[in-house]
Amino acid sequence: MNATAETSVTATTAPPEDRIPFVEEIKNLLYASKGNPISTCIQCGTCSATCPVASGGFMDNSPRRIIAMIRSGFKEQVLKSNTFWYCASCYQCTVRCPRGIDIAELMYGLKRFTVWRTEHQEGLIGPTFSETFVKMIMRTGRSYEPVLATTYLFTYGLPEMILEAQTATSLMLKGRLPLLPARIKRLENFKRMIRHIIPIGDKE
């Protein structure tokens, strides 16, 4: 009795996104893609076997597993997974999929899905990097590697940090890494133009 009452309450007050099967939402992300829908996946594992990141052991769930999880409605686990943020966009999975599913596009779709809803896993390099990059372009019109790199440098251990610093120093000595951030000419005009196109919102 209580259980029924509880279910009916959640059915009426649940946010709209919880009323629609997760797989439907994800299917829509690939609606415009040339590939087949994920419901055609045969779980052969070619995508995971061919993925340089998954076979390197960086992903918590392989692409094959992510597809299975989406189809089974494991929404929370999928959104909190790091799989799509670690995707290197090499498109090997898309090229080799025997069912013609555009898996790389699915990874992009999942990134957008979580970014719009700010539901991605905390502490990942991917979203922080994207955010810093986009905001930097808006501010200076150019990307500046030393700032971009430091956004995720601290997530590494000390040996990796020293290694990165050595690489940066040698790049700098060769003149491949600028010391000062590059700024474009007529930056104010550029900023005004961007503000016309994208209402960035109030200053933080």
């Binding site: 957008r112 970014v115 209402p199 933080e204």
Partner: peptide, 9 residues
């Protein structure tokens, strides 16, 4: 990934 462009909103 434009959601980043609407800070605080």
């Amino acid at each position: 990934q434009m959601a980043f462009l609407f800070p605080g909103q």
